[in-house]
Design a protein around this nucleic acid. Sequence first.
DNA 1: CGTCTATTTGAATGTACTCAAAAGCGGTGG
DNA 2: CCACCGCTTTTGAGTACATTCAAATAGACG
Lengths: 195, 195
Amino acid sequence: MNTDIILKNINSQVTLSDQETEFLKSVVIARPFKPGELIVRAGDPARYLMFVNSGYLMTYFTDTDGKDHVVQFATNGWWAPDLYSLSKEPNTPYSTRGLCDGELLLIPRLSLDQMFRVCANMDRYFRIQFQNTVIRHQGRILKRHTAPAEERYQEFIDTYPRMEQYVAQKYIASYLGITPEFLSKVRSKMARKIS
Amino acid sequence: MNTDIILKNINSQVTLSDQETEFLKSVVIARPFKPGELIVRAGDPARYLMFVNSGYLMTYFTDTDGKDHVVQFATNGWWAPDLYSLSKEPNTPYSTRGLCDGELLLIPRLSLDQMFRVCANMDRYFRIQFQNTVIRHQGRILKRHTAPAEERYQEFIDTYPRMEQYVAQKYIASYLGITPEFLSKVRSKMARKIS
DNA sequence: CGTCTATTTGAATGTACTCAAAAGCGGTGG
DNA sequence: CCACCGCTTTTGAGTACATTCAAATAGACG
């Protein structure tokens, strides 16, 4: 199993001891996924914290009308956006689906408690990780409130240039909080501007 | 200085040793504030992590048109929403303003590093704190994408019933991502429904 | 009381949505 | 290899939610 990426990621913020490294390696489970595969279904027990080793995936919420709303995408070196395995809730309200071939590293819920008990560094690592995530989410909320769809889309493709190739437009639209039809119109308007 | 609330809050998630408690007490600074007072101005150095001991405050972003956009409110027992004192950025893009008489406990930026070095429990505490915040923010983003203004306003007053009394409507509108005029119309529509 | 700001109300406008239909695209099987 | 199927994207017309601008009313504070 390839733990290079996750270890490199963690060690960029903290310095894991050999013991801690071994512990982590001993609890993670490799989990390949395929394009379109439903990795976690909304309502399922939140069994694992998930790290993306390779590929693309998305986490989304299905509303009462049956419409899906993308919470966030994830790729190489990111934690999957569904954090309910860390919460007190036994089940997650979010679904997670593969967008291409890829591999996850899973940390079982039970191992998480143990990990945080054994590895003080992991608390530090996730504290830093989540604190940055909170700052980014505040920025995303503000952007939603201050910028029209066109500007948000432009920022998305600037920030995640690769994402466009793997993610269907309708999912990007959903992530941005607009309909796929409207994103299509935004894009054709932008294309007209350039020419 | 009254550190009861902050200690109670932290000890609800972890168990601080006497040493850790003393350390925390030794670094926090009491900082009263007044209604309308600008506690932190956007662009200022992010000097302190701020805990609200009493009163209400808000953190907001001023856009290029000079319009303010409320990131979040905070009250007794909450950390102020501006987390830039924990980031690598020296300055914060957010302003923080008092909404009534109140008091903050400040933890200076320099003490934070030291605190995390000395108190492993604080990493744990903030890890849990931020992980819950991330989950709430994901919910807020989704709500923004799935629910119209009326429903978001209803949820706001249900979730923070006290807030309404201390916070001007225009700030609630800003937090919800709508104009004060439209919130006024939403409210009058809701009032008509009840009768 | 008078002033200043917040809130309300109304009319016109704009951004984004819904519904419907056509066009594009990718895969699969004949 | 091409024809067909299913799904995504595009395009268009009509609509709705929310904004802007302007003016009137209401509240808060000295």
